[in-house]
Amino acid sequence: MTATVERVITDTAFVVRDADLTDGALLVLSPASPAPEPPQLVTVRGTVIQFSHRDLDDRYRLGSGGPYRTFEGKHALVAAEVTVWE
């Protein structure tokens, strides 16, 4: 998918926004860091999962659960590839 980076939560987690997304925004988890910066346009390829902060915190170094509350139990994308468009 191709979308605009809305905000960065950590080096391994960022939010993209696109009108075609059901909720308008999608959490992207990426083991590669650093995360792209807003308002960069990115193409992300990966696997859609159901987000659980508790289950993914250690693997992606997510930090505090606060910024993730709106994504809990919803779809997120685990990125296999992130392309930043200049």
Rank of each mutant, 00 (worst) to 15 (best):
E81G: 12
V78A: 07
P36N: 05
D58H: 09
V78Q: 00
V8I: 08
R7S: 14
M1Q: 05
G65M: 12
G63P: 00
D58Y: 10
V8Q: 10
R69V: 15
G66M: 07
D55C: 04
Q40G: 06
A76H: 01
V8T: 11
L26E: 08
S30K: 08
I9T: 05
V78Y: 06
R54M: 03
E86W: 07
L77D: 05
V44L: 04
R7F: 00
A76E: 00
V28H: 09
R7A: 11
E81V: 14
L26M: 13
A3M: 03
V28W: 11
A35I: 05
L77Q: 00
Q50L: 12
G66P: 09
T83V: 15
L29Q: 06
L41I: 13
L26P: 04
L26T: 11
A3N: 06
P31F: 10
G24D: 02
T83E: 13
G46K: 00
S30D: 15
V48K: 05
H53W: 15
A80T: 07
T70I: 10
I9P: 07
L41P: 10
V28F: 10
V5W: 03
T2S: 11
H75C: 06
T4L: 09
V5E: 02
P34I: 12
V28G: 11
H75M: 04
L41Q: 14
F71H: 11
L27I: 02
Q40M: 05
T43W: 03
D57N: 13
L56P: 02
W85A: 14
R7G: 04
Q40D: 13
V82A: 05
T4D: 08
E81M: 10
I9W: 03
I9A: 10
V44Y: 03
I9V: 13
I9H: 10
V28P: 12
F14E: 03
A80I: 03
K74P: 06
F14S: 06
V28D: 10
P36S: 07
M1R: 04
V82H: 05
